[in-house]
Design a protein around this nucleic acid. Structure first.
Lengths: 116, 116
DNA sequence: GTATGATACCTAGACAACCTAAGTGAGAGA
DNA sequence: TCTCTCACTTAGGTTGTCTAGGTATCATAC
């Protein structure tokens, strides 16, 4: 039960997707592969998580999709950021930074300070 | 719907609790207040999240509890880390560090590198 | 021409974590 | 005695992710 190294990927998947799309349009499969490659497989993106996440982002108007053809000559849905998506990316990025700083503060503070 | 600034606190709550207890025994209410104070309310610990988390940690043998009296002369359950809990803290701390580094890498990498 | 593997997408159902919202009881101070 | 804070408890709902199945197409090898 959760002896796995990482169970933190909750709420950050959307952020990772938005960020990946900020580099330009990409299709779902490619987004997943890129995130994994970029993090040397520290972050693994399961398809059962990825596609529902994409649909939700689309539903919320943060990304839009067009069918197209990949370099491999395969049919794929290419997503790109909307204006709202770009804005959300900035907001979520900031939130993540604040959150990560807060966690780091708790993890790094010296025991002595606890009595203050 | 998740327009709130922070929805990242998933999986990190256990870690925060273990870390707080590494400074010495503490009761649930105190743990929550300390985390909030330490992060200037960036991390908010709801009681409906806190207590179930404590019970689960206890069930898993990572912490143990004794009833006692607080400085305020109130009845409270004081938790402390077990050996297994200390070990888990180290493991989770490492996992968090790896995870945070991975996310940061994705967020900070330059668009140009995406084509590599 | 037909296996096979990689690419690419889809989705139902289960599960785990968190939150909302309600409650109990006891001490402190007015 | 009333109210506020402290401190703990728990039922029920929501949400996000994962498991595990599936479809279809293209490239390659045989």
């Amino acid at each position: 039960m959760a002896d796995q190294p990482l169970d933190f990927l909750k709420g950050t998947l959307d952020l990772m997707i938005l960020k990946t799309l900020s580099w330009g349009p990409a299709h779902g499969y490619g987004i997943a592969r890129w995130i994994e490659q970029c993090t040397e497989d520290v972050l693994q993106v399961e398809e059962g998580s990825l596609y529902p996440a994409l649909y939700k982002l689309e539903e919320n108007g943060l990304i839009v999709a067009d069918w197209g053809i990949t370099e491999n000559n395969r049919r794929a849905k290419f997503y790109r950021l909307t204006a709202a998506g770009k804005k959300q990316l900035r907001t979520s990025h900031d939130s993540w930074s604040r959150f990560a700083r807060a966690v780091t503060r708790v993890l790094e503070i010296a025991p002595a300070a606890a009595s203050a």
